[in-house]
Computed example of a mutant assay.
Amino acid sequence: MKKSLLASALAALTLAAAPAAQAATTSSFLFLSPAPAPTDMPSPTDMTSPTDMPSPTDMTSPGATASPVGPGCASLPTSGPGSAASMATEPVGTALAANPELSSLAKAVDAAGLTETLNSAKDITVFAPTNAAFDKIPKEELDTIMGDKDKLTKILQNHVVEGRKAPADLTAGPLTTLGGGTLTVTGSGEDYTVGDAKILCGNLQTSNATVYLVDSVLLPGAEASATPSESAS
């Protein structure tokens, strides 16, 4: 009788333990199974860069794609000081000083104390007389001008106008200089004249200005680019 009761108790315990073991096994498999990846995450192919961001080639400086115009452009150095590529990286005062054909102008700008003024200016156009242009002025008269800072400053200001002027802008009307005078430009294509001075090569870009090389000095109070003795007569 005791053995029968003991056997019945063991059987009952075995049957009760089976579902618990099965549940434990199932729970362990559920715990170890990896969680599925979220279905709303973008795939790598969807994570493209924004299409409205400018490429490096779009972020160019003003005037970087402008082409020089004028019969004298062919004589410009192809590289180094005085070349279009070199001028484009520098402010205008520094660019003029580095150009071998503009050493007389650079000397005048320095004597007037205008180098930093030109370098700090924003968006201007400079008509830059070459060395040959200064050579047209008799030496004694040029020495007198160079020794008179106020007069020299006035003359140099007569070569600067506000705004970057492309060739097509030059003939739109008289240009008002920083010295308060006016300059009239005529011509088209590769042939332009400012006053009586020929533009040898223009539309040259610096970091803050557009430059036109001219063959005569432009004097205040006269459209003509005469020497001081001619303008007084």
Rank of each mutant, 00 (worst) to 15 (best):
A74I: 13
I137T: 00
E230D: 10
L102A: 00
V185A: 08
L218R: 08
A97T: 11
T125L: 08
E101M: 14
T171I: 11
T26C: 08
Y212W: 06
A88L: 04
S28Y: 01
D110L: 13
P56Q: 12
T177F: 07
S229Y: 09
L218M: 06
N119T: 03
Q22I: 15
K122A: 09
S8G: 06
A64S: 15
A7D: 12
P81M: 11
A222W: 02
G179H: 13
T125R: 01
D123A: 12
S75R: 15
L219E: 06
G93V: 15
A197N: 05
M59D: 14
A9K: 00
Q205C: 09
T153N: 09
M1L: 14
F134E: 04
D123H: 13
A197L: 14
A121C: 10
M1I: 02
A20N: 10
K136D: 12
T117R: 04
N99Q: 02
P100H: 13
G181K: 08
D40Q: 06
S120N: 04
K154A: 15
A98W: 12
T60H: 12
T26Q: 14
D148T: 10
S86M: 13
Q157Y: 12
N208I: 05
T89K: 01
G72N: 09
P129V: 08
T184M: 11
S103K: 13
D169E: 03
T206S: 10
C201I: 06
K154M: 12
P68D: 02
Y192P: 00
Q205T: 14
T184A: 09
A133F: 01
L32N: 06
S216W: 13
V160P: 05
A232M: 09
K151Y: 05
P50R: 15
K3C: 01
S49H: 12
A108D: 04
P34S: 03
P91L: 07
L175N: 03
P38M: 03
L30S: 00
L13V: 15
G82E: 05
P129R: 00
G195A: 00
C201L: 02
M1P: 06
L183V: 10
L114E: 10
P54V: 11
K139C: 01
C201R: 03
T186N: 14
Q22M: 14
G163D: 02
S43N: 06
G82T: 01
T117M: 07
N119L: 05
T57G: 02
P81Q: 07
A74Q: 08
A7H: 00
A112L: 11
L178A: 00
L6D: 04
I124H: 07
A112H: 01
T206R: 07
E162V: 15
I124W: 13
T26G: 00
S83M: 06
D123V: 14
S79L: 05
A226W: 05
L204D: 03
T65Y: 13
S104M: 13
A66T: 04
N99K: 02
A95K: 06
A222F: 10
Y192S: 03
A16F: 14
G93Y: 11
K165W: 12
S4F: 12
S4R: 15
Y212Q: 03
V185G: 01
D135R: 01
